[in-house]
Amino acid sequence: DMPHRFKVHNYMSPTFCDHCGSLLWGLVKQGLKCEDCGMNVHHKCREKVANLCGI
């Protein structure tokens, strides 16, 4: 059981939050991507995600 390793990410195409399902808005640093499993989340959704990475 490992925690997610979220890192700020710049998305080049429209991407949706894997937690709430809404679009990650903006041009740069729109959200966070787990370096291990690739989960994408809003900055505000980070604390709502279970801290178990499903690598």
Rank of each mutant, 00 (worst) to 15 (best):
L52N: 11
N40C: 10
H9P: 03
T15P: 03
C53M: 09
H4F: 02
S13G: 12
G54E: 15
H42S: 07
R5T: 07
G26N: 03
S13M: 14
H4P: 03
V49W: 10
N10D: 06
N10Y: 04
N10T: 10
T15S: 07
L52T: 13
E35Q: 13
A50R: 10
F16T: 12
H43W: 08
K33R: 14
K48C: 08
K48Y: 11
C20A: 01
R46K: 06
H19E: 15
L52Y: 12
K33V: 11
G38E: 14
G21A: 13
D18T: 09
E35H: 13
K29E: 07
V49G: 14
G21E: 14
F16G: 07
C34E: 00
C34M: 00
K29Y: 13
P3R: 15
G21Y: 14
G54V: 10
A50V: 10
H9Y: 10
R5H: 15
H42D: 05
C53T: 14
P3G: 15
E47Y: 09
Y11S: 09
S13C: 10
G54Q: 08
L27K: 01
L52R: 07
N51D: 02
K29I: 06
R46E: 06
W25M: 06
R5G: 15
P3V: 15
G38S: 12
H19M: 14
P3T: 15
C34A: 00
N10W: 07
E35C: 14
K33D: 11
D1G: 07
T15I: 10
V28Y: 11
V8Y: 05
Q30F: 02
G26Q: 02
S13V: 06
R46P: 06
C37L: 01
L27C: 05
G38M: 13
C20E: 05
G26W: 03
K48V: 10
V41Y: 07
W25G: 03
G31A: 06
N10L: 03
G54R: 11
H43F: 07
L24W: 01
Y11I: 03
S22Y: 05
V41W: 09
C53G: 15
C37G: 00
D1L: 02
N10P: 03
E47S: 07
L24M: 13
H9W: 08
W25F: 09
E47D: 07
A50W: 10
H42Y: 01
T15K: 08
S22V: 06
L32N: 13
D1V: 13
H43D: 09
V41T: 12
L23E: 03
H9A: 11
C34I: 00
F16H: 15
F6V: 04
K48W: 08
C45D: 04
L32C: 14
G54W: 06
K48N: 09
N10A: 03
G26K: 01
Q30M: 03
T15M: 12
K44P: 13
C37F: 00
T15N: 09
H42V: 01
W25T: 04
G54M: 09
V41A: 08
I55H: 12
M2C: 15
K44D: 08
E47C: 13
G31E: 01
D18I: 10
D18E: 12
V41L: 11
F16Q: 10
N40F: 02
G31P: 01
C45K: 00
K48E: 10
D18N: 13
H42R: 07
